[in-house]
Simulated assay, not measured.
Amino acid sequence: MSASDFFLNVSIWRVICVGVIGTLAVGNLAWMMRRRGVRDGFTRKLNHFGLSILSAAMLFGLPDEIFVPTSIATSLCVIIIYAWSSLSKNQYIAAVIASNVRDRDLPNGNFFVFLPLVSGQLTTYTALAIVNPLYAKIAFCAMGLGDGLAEPIGMRFGKRQYTVKDVFWRVRNTKSIEGSSAVFAVSFAACGIGLILSSSVDVVTTLALSLGFALTMTGVEATAPRGMDNMLIVGTGAAFLHFLAG
């Protein structure tokens, strides 16, 4: 595909709906909840989960030749909005970043917003370019929906907690069995549904791949260094399916 064809295949209205309207709407909703006392882990993941759901609903049904350029354009738009938000004094624009920053990440709150955002998007672009786009979509769902639910579920229902050493930042990250179970369930469902709809493998193989994929994604989410989980989930998930599903 030439550069001109790439840009011509971008669905502009979808980019605006997800990248501009969606980002600002979800960010302001999350900030309103934050100001009313909702914990920062919930509001941060509302942004993560909400944009992932909106992206999947608006983009995943498109043919690959439209899906890929539109997804990339949408991701770039989201990053631009977040960058604008980090500099803006307008309360509605600034709310996007404010609703994403966790108190435990201060004084480097913005850094821990942009690190997973940018690294996750770049890894998604790479996966879309290198492997079957279906595998990138499944890995994106594990990251966007599974990881997006893990922290809120862990905070609300997490009774069985455990800690994992973060070898990169040299701290210990607290996880929960309940949160990790959410990653497993969503990853298993995303892989199974994606493979079944594509009719690429038989039922037994689909179940085996889905189980292996879900276990892998759960392990990656649990052990990933802070801020690097988006990148590692998408990259590992896409690679897993590429090498094992063919």
Rank of each mutant, 00 (worst) to 15 (best):
V183P: 08
N100Q: 10
F213M: 08
G194R: 00
T206H: 00
N100W: 10
A208E: 10
K175Q: 10
A129C: 13
L117M: 12
G179V: 08
F168N: 06
N90A: 13
T205N: 13
V186H: 07
K159N: 09
L207K: 01
V101S: 04
L211R: 01
R104Y: 01
F114S: 08
S198H: 03
G192N: 13
P116M: 06
T205Y: 05
A190H: 09
F140M: 13
V203K: 06
I153D: 09
L87Y: 08
A208R: 04
E151W: 04
P152W: 03
K175D: 06
L115P: 06
D147S: 00
Q91I: 14
A150L: 03
R102N: 13
E178I: 10
I177V: 12
D103P: 12
Y162A: 12
L134A: 09
F111K: 02
A127M: 14
L134T: 12
P107W: 12
T126N: 08
G146L: 02
A189G: 03
S176A: 04
F140D: 13
T126Q: 14
N108R: 12
I138S: 09
A94I: 09
M217V: 05
A150G: 02
T218Y: 12
L197F: 00
K175E: 14
G146E: 07
G148D: 07
D166F: 01
N108M: 15
S199D: 13
A136H: 07
A150K: 02
T126L: 15
L122F: 15
A95Q: 00
A127T: 10
I196C: 04
N132L: 07
L207Y: 15
G158H: 02
G219E: 05
I138W: 01
I130C: 13
